[in-house]
Protein backbone atom coordinates (compact mmCIF):
# COMPACT_ATOMS: atom_id res chain seq x y z
CA UNK A 1 0.00 0.00 0.00
CA UNK A 2 2.78 2.35 1.03
CA UNK A 3 4.69 1.59 -2.17
CA UNK A 4 1.65 2.10 -4.34
CA UNK A 5 1.11 5.53 -2.80
CA UNK A 6 4.69 6.46 -3.46
CA UNK A 7 4.35 5.35 -7.05
CA UNK A 8 1.22 7.41 -7.51
CA UNK A 9 2.84 10.41 -5.91
CA UNK A 10 5.82 10.16 -8.26
CA UNK A 11 3.52 10.56 -11.24
CA UNK A 12 2.07 13.80 -9.98
CA UNK A 13 3.36 16.83 -11.76
CA UNK A 14 2.43 20.46 -11.31
CA UNK A 15 -0.28 21.91 -13.53
CA UNK A 16 1.34 22.59 -16.95
CA UNK A 17 -0.01 26.14 -17.20
CA UNK A 18 1.28 26.89 -13.71
CA UNK A 19 4.62 25.35 -14.71
CA UNK A 20 4.61 27.54 -17.81
CA UNK A 21 4.00 30.69 -15.76
CA UNK A 22 6.88 29.77 -13.42
CA UNK A 23 9.17 28.99 -16.37
CA UNK A 24 8.22 32.30 -17.99
CA UNK A 25 9.02 34.16 -14.76
CA UNK A 26 12.43 32.46 -14.49
CA UNK A 27 13.15 33.39 -18.11
CA UNK A 28 11.94 36.97 -17.65
CA UNK A 29 14.08 37.37 -14.53
CA UNK A 30 17.09 35.93 -16.41
CA UNK A 31 16.69 38.43 -19.25
CA UNK A 32 16.08 41.28 -16.79
CA UNK A 33 19.26 40.50 -14.87
CA UNK A 34 21.66 39.29 -17.57
CA UNK A 35 20.22 40.56 -20.87
CA UNK A 36 20.23 37.00 -22.25
CA UNK A 37 17.93 34.01 -22.02
CA UNK A 38 18.38 30.49 -20.72
CA UNK A 39 20.26 27.69 -22.48
CA UNK A 40 21.38 24.10 -22.24
CA UNK A 41 23.36 22.78 -25.22
CA UNK A 42 25.98 25.53 -24.73
CA UNK A 43 27.28 23.81 -21.60
CA UNK A 44 27.91 20.57 -23.50
CA UNK A 45 29.64 22.58 -26.22
CA UNK A 46 31.92 24.16 -23.61
CA UNK A 47 32.75 20.68 -22.33
CA UNK A 48 33.64 19.51 -25.85
CA UNK A 49 35.78 22.64 -26.43
CA UNK A 50 37.55 22.15 -23.08
CA UNK A 51 38.30 18.48 -23.83
CA UNK A 52 39.66 19.17 -27.32
CA UNK A 53 41.73 22.09 -26.05
CA UNK A 54 43.22 19.86 -23.36
CA UNK A 55 44.13 17.08 -25.81
CA UNK A 56 45.19 19.14 -28.83
CA UNK A 57 45.69 22.79 -27.80
CA UNK A 58 47.28 24.06 -31.02
CA UNK A 59 44.69 22.40 -33.24
CA UNK A 60 41.84 23.74 -31.09
CA UNK A 61 43.11 27.31 -31.15
CA UNK A 62 43.58 27.35 -34.91
CA UNK A 63 40.44 25.43 -35.90
CA UNK A 64 37.64 27.72 -37.07
CA UNK A 65 34.94 26.47 -34.70
CA UNK A 66 36.83 25.60 -31.51
CA UNK A 67 38.88 28.77 -31.92
CA UNK A 68 35.74 30.88 -31.53
CA UNK A 69 35.30 29.70 -27.96
CA UNK A 70 38.90 29.78 -26.77
CA UNK A 71 40.45 32.88 -25.26
CA UNK A 72 43.59 33.49 -23.25
CA UNK A 73 41.93 35.05 -20.24
CA UNK A 74 39.18 32.51 -19.60
CA UNK A 75 39.01 28.73 -19.30
CA UNK A 76 36.45 27.34 -21.80
CA UNK A 77 34.39 25.93 -18.91
CA UNK A 78 34.15 29.33 -17.21
CA UNK A 79 30.95 30.38 -18.96
CA UNK A 80 27.55 31.52 -17.77
CA UNK A 81 25.83 28.50 -19.32
CA UNK A 82 28.07 25.97 -17.55
CA UNK A 83 27.11 27.41 -14.15
CA UNK A 84 23.47 27.67 -15.17
CA UNK A 85 23.53 24.01 -16.25
CA UNK A 86 25.02 22.89 -12.91
CA UNK A 87 21.99 24.71 -11.47
CA UNK A 88 19.64 22.75 -13.77
CA UNK A 89 20.97 19.48 -12.33
CA UNK A 90 20.61 20.70 -8.74
CA UNK A 91 17.11 22.13 -9.30
CA UNK A 92 15.83 19.04 -11.09
CA UNK A 93 17.32 16.80 -8.40
CA UNK A 94 15.59 18.81 -5.66
CA UNK A 95 12.26 18.65 -7.48
CA UNK A 96 12.74 14.90 -7.99
CA UNK A 97 13.50 14.39 -4.29
CA UNK A 98 10.38 16.32 -3.20
CA UNK A 99 8.18 14.37 -5.60
CA UNK A 100 9.74 10.97 -4.87
CA UNK A 101 10.95 10.51 -8.43
CA UNK A 102 14.67 9.97 -7.88
CA UNK A 103 15.66 6.37 -8.65
CA UNK A 104 19.04 4.84 -9.28
CA UNK A 105 19.80 4.13 -12.96
CA UNK A 106 16.63 3.05 -14.62
CA UNK A 107 15.58 3.16 -18.26
CA UNK A 108 12.21 4.64 -19.14
CA UNK A 109 10.78 3.01 -22.25
CA UNK A 110 7.52 2.04 -23.89
CA UNK A 111 6.50 -1.54 -22.96
CA UNK A 112 6.67 -2.36 -26.67
CA UNK A 113 10.42 -1.83 -26.96
CA UNK A 114 13.37 -3.21 -25.00
CA UNK A 115 15.57 -1.03 -22.77
CA UNK A 116 18.38 -1.66 -25.27
CA UNK A 117 16.38 -0.22 -28.18
CA UNK A 118 15.50 2.78 -26.03
CA UNK A 119 19.15 3.41 -25.16
CA UNK A 120 20.25 3.13 -28.81
CA UNK A 121 17.64 5.64 -29.97
CA UNK A 122 18.28 7.93 -27.00
CA UNK A 123 21.94 8.06 -28.02
CA UNK A 124 21.14 8.63 -31.70
CA UNK A 125 18.65 11.34 -30.78
CA UNK A 126 21.29 12.99 -28.62
CA UNK A 127 23.85 12.92 -31.43
CA UNK A 128 21.36 14.54 -33.83
CA UNK A 129 20.32 17.13 -31.26
CA UNK A 130 23.99 17.89 -30.64
CA UNK A 131 24.63 18.51 -34.34
CA UNK A 132 21.36 20.39 -34.88
CA UNK A 133 21.88 22.68 -31.89
CA UNK A 134 25.14 23.94 -33.38
CA UNK A 135 23.52 24.78 -36.70
CA UNK A 136 20.65 26.36 -34.77
CA UNK A 137 23.07 28.36 -32.55
CA UNK A 138 21.05 27.03 -29.64
CA UNK A 139 18.64 24.24 -28.79
CA UNK A 140 15.05 24.18 -27.59
CA UNK A 141 16.04 26.35 -24.61
CA UNK A 142 18.52 28.78 -26.12
CA UNK A 143 17.03 29.16 -29.60
CA UNK A 144 13.36 28.15 -29.57
CA UNK A 145 12.34 29.26 -26.04
CA UNK A 146 14.65 32.19 -25.29
CA UNK A 147 14.83 33.22 -28.94
CA UNK A 148 11.07 33.40 -29.46
CA UNK A 149 10.55 35.08 -26.07
CA UNK A 150 12.96 37.85 -27.11
CA UNK A 151 11.23 38.01 -30.52
CA UNK A 152 14.35 36.89 -32.40
CA UNK A 153 13.33 35.68 -35.85
CA UNK A 154 15.87 32.85 -35.56
CA UNK A 155 14.17 31.62 -32.38
CA UNK A 156 10.73 31.52 -33.96
CA UNK A 157 12.08 29.71 -37.05
CA UNK A 158 13.90 27.21 -34.81
CA UNK A 159 10.69 26.52 -32.87
CA UNK A 160 8.66 25.93 -36.05
CA UNK A 161 11.42 23.80 -37.60
CA UNK A 162 11.93 21.61 -34.50
CA UNK A 163 8.27 20.93 -33.75
CA UNK A 164 7.20 20.91 -37.43
CA UNK A 165 9.81 18.26 -38.26
CA UNK A 166 8.84 16.35 -35.13
CA UNK A 167 5.24 16.08 -36.30
CA UNK A 168 6.24 15.26 -39.89
CA UNK A 169 8.50 12.36 -38.93
CA UNK A 170 6.66 11.13 -35.80
CA UNK A 171 4.81 8.48 -37.80
CA UNK A 172 8.06 6.73 -38.78
CA UNK A 173 9.18 6.41 -35.18
CA UNK A 174 5.77 5.64 -33.62
CA UNK A 175 6.81 2.12 -32.56
CA UNK A 176 9.29 3.67 -30.13
CA UNK A 177 6.53 5.41 -28.19
CA UNK A 178 3.04 4.05 -28.85
Amino acid sequence: MQIKNLEERSKQYINPYFGGVLLGLVLLLTIFITGRGLGASGAVKSTVVATVEKIAPTYAEKQDYYGKFISDDKHPMNTWLVFETIGIFIGAFLSGIFAGRVKKFHVEHSPKITPKTRLIFATLGGVLFGIGSQFGRGCTSGAALSGTATMATAGFVAMIAIFGTGYLVAWFFRKLWI
Binding site: F93, Q134, G164
Partner: peptide, 27 residues
Protein backbone atom coordinates in the same frame (compact mmCIF):
# COMPACT_ATOMS: atom_id res chain seq x y z
CA UNK B 1 19.53 22.76 -37.46
CA UNK B 2 15.84 22.80 -36.55
CA UNK B 3 15.07 19.89 -38.87
CA UNK B 4 17.95 17.82 -37.43
CA UNK B 5 16.81 18.69 -33.90
CA UNK B 6 13.25 17.64 -34.80
CA UNK B 7 14.52 14.17 -35.75
CA UNK B 8 16.59 14.08 -32.58
CA UNK B 9 13.56 14.97 -30.45
CA UNK B 10 11.34 12.21 -31.87
CA UNK B 11 14.09 9.57 -31.78
CA UNK B 12 15.59 10.51 -28.43
CA UNK B 13 12.52 11.78 -26.61
CA UNK B 14 14.50 14.57 -25.00
CA UNK B 15 16.06 17.90 -25.82
CA UNK B 16 19.31 18.98 -24.08
CA UNK B 17 17.81 20.81 -21.07
CA UNK B 18 15.20 18.15 -20.41
CA UNK B 19 17.78 15.36 -20.70
CA UNK B 20 19.79 17.02 -17.90
CA UNK B 21 16.71 16.89 -15.67
CA UNK B 22 16.28 13.20 -16.55
CA UNK B 23 19.91 12.52 -15.59
CA UNK B 24 19.35 14.38 -12.32
CA UNK B 25 16.63 11.93 -11.24
CA UNK B 26 18.61 8.88 -12.33
CA UNK B 27 17.38 8.05 -15.83
Amino acid sequence: GGVIMGFGFVMGGYCPGTSFTGVAIGK
